[in-house]
Structures are given as structure tokens and as C-alpha cells.
Amino acid sequence: MDAIILQFLNGVDKGAAYALIALGLTLIFGTLGVVNFAHGALFMLGAFCAVTTNHLLTLSQKVKDPSITFFEAYIDQPYLVTWYGDFGQTIIDWSVPLSLLLAIPVMFLIGTLLERGLIRHFYNRPHADQILVTFGLAIVLGEIVRTFYGANPIPQPTPDFFQGQVPIGAPFGLDIAYPAWRLMYFIVGILVMFGVFALLQFTRFGMVVRAGMQDRQMVQLLGINIQARFTLVFGMAAAIAGIAGALYTPTLPPNYEMGMEFLVISFVVVVVGGMGSLGGAVLAGFMLGILEAIVALPVISDLIPGINQVIIYTVAVVVLLTRPRGLMGRKGVMED
């Protein structure tokens, strides 16, 4: 039983990553009607924002190693440590959470620029063209990252504070401990999702965007510049992918190809959840993440070898064939 719960929890944080990416994909699709194959690349860029932050914070100078007195020995000491001592060390330790300060604005900017510069010209082109151009974009972004950071995964530190396990089973009398960082990831994911829902449901901006999703032309006729709002939504979706990517780095060392792996699954998530349904994307994200983790249990994977590799796709096929609209898809949205 404990094993099942633990595996369930393991699925939850991966599910959070899927859900965040799928949320962004759905936002973009729902507002702009564009299928964004570059969204995985945006997730990857977010992860590399964390790498960059870490890199910047640990810029070092050579200083004399005080522990060796026989000869002149030099070690790399980050400037931050030279300047602020222990406090500098703490900053470096917290580089991944701090990277959000870089990731959110940078990704937002990249998102809006992409929308203005590229995606906008593809609204009236066929879906196939949108897929192709964003696919090309994903290749280009991935390769640019590779020229700067190389092809190998770059591990990122988990802050000391989040090292270790949280005994979350204790209140229920269960002996379950869960890595603190992953718990944090899950909580942040939930907060971001609630933030997005709140923004869409309870603000004027959200109301306009929702109206635009329903009937773009009508909103325009009412004299609202829906285009500007949609550009912001695209930036927002990119920023969400950036947050998801940056915070995922301690769990999975990023490399330039990670985006595509997440993208394929996120698409499946979107399809299962229902194209254009934000709630469906979140629900399906968690569901598939958890399902993937649970079937990885030895009991099940011994019974049906390889099930953990195919379960997500199998679910997608079954859902698409039995319920073409997805779990929570609205009627009439991309049903064919």
C-alpha cells in the first residue's frame, strides 16, 4: 500500500510538469488557434534560464587556497562568496528558485516576441503550416541552446533547505517520506494553475480573453484590441512553461533535447484532456503522470513488461477512439 501511495506521489510532480506545459499549450490553442510544437522548446529554455542563473551566480575568480601553505595553490571562488561570504554561498545554493526572477521575464519576453514576429503571420495559414513552422522553431531553439551549452545534461543543485525528505505520511499514521523539492514543485505547480484560473475567471483581462476564445470577431467588433491581449496570453503561456522548466532542473538535469520528450507527452495530455479545455489539460496532466508512475511499480511492470513506456499512448488512443472530444473538451472545438 505504501509503495502505491509513494508511486502515486512520484507521479504527482511529473504530472505537475505535464499539466503546466499542457496548460500553456491549451492557452495558446484556445486563444490563438495555433498548435505550438515549440512549446517543449520553451520548457527547455526555461530550464536553461536556471542553468544560466547558476552560471552567472558562480562566476569565479582565482584566489589563493588558504588551506594549502606549502606552495601557491589557487581555487575558484565565486565573486559572490568573495563579496558577501556565507550569504553569497546561500544565494548560490538557492540559484534554482532565484532563476525564476530571470526565467519569468525572459520567457515572457520571448513569448511575446515570438507571437509578434512569427506566430501572428500564421493565424490564417493551415494547421499543418503552423505545426511545421513551430517544429522548425523548436529545432532552431534546441540547436541554439546546444551551441552555447553543449549536448550533455547539466545537473543543477537543489537548495539545502529542500534537501531531504518530508514525512508527509505522518499525520495519517503512514510511514511515507517524500523529497521536499518535489513536494515544492507540486505546490508551485498548483499555485501557478490556480493563478491562471483566477486570472481568467476573476479579472477583467481574463473576461476579455475568455470572450475572445468564444468569439474573437465579436470581441473585436466591440472595440476591444483582442490581439494585444492574446499576445500577452502567449507570453504568459511561455512564462508558465519557463517556470515549469526552471524548477524541474534539480529533478532532471536539462539538455537541449528535453523539450521534445515533454512536448510529445504534453500533446497527448492536451488531446486526452480535450483540446481547448484548461481544466481538462490539468486533470489529464496529473492523471497521466500518476498513471505512468503507478504502472512502473514492479508488481505491474513484471506482469506486463514495458507497460510504463506505452501506457500514456495507450490511454490516448483509447480516449481518442471512444471520446473524440477528450475528457473535458467543449463541443465543437476541433472535433474532427
Binding site: V35, H127, V271, I312, L320, P324, D336
Partner: peptide, 21 residues
Amino acid sequence: RRSGIYFSILTLAFAQMMYSL
């Protein structure tokens, strides 16, 4: 059974599945 982008996504998912298998 599906067309448009669903078809693209389904074929992509299938190919990835076969690759990992």
C-alpha cells in the same frame, strides 16, 4: 480516425512509443 492536428499528434505519439519500445 482523426484528422488534422490530431492525426499528426497520434502518429508522433505512436512513433515515440515504438522508439521507446
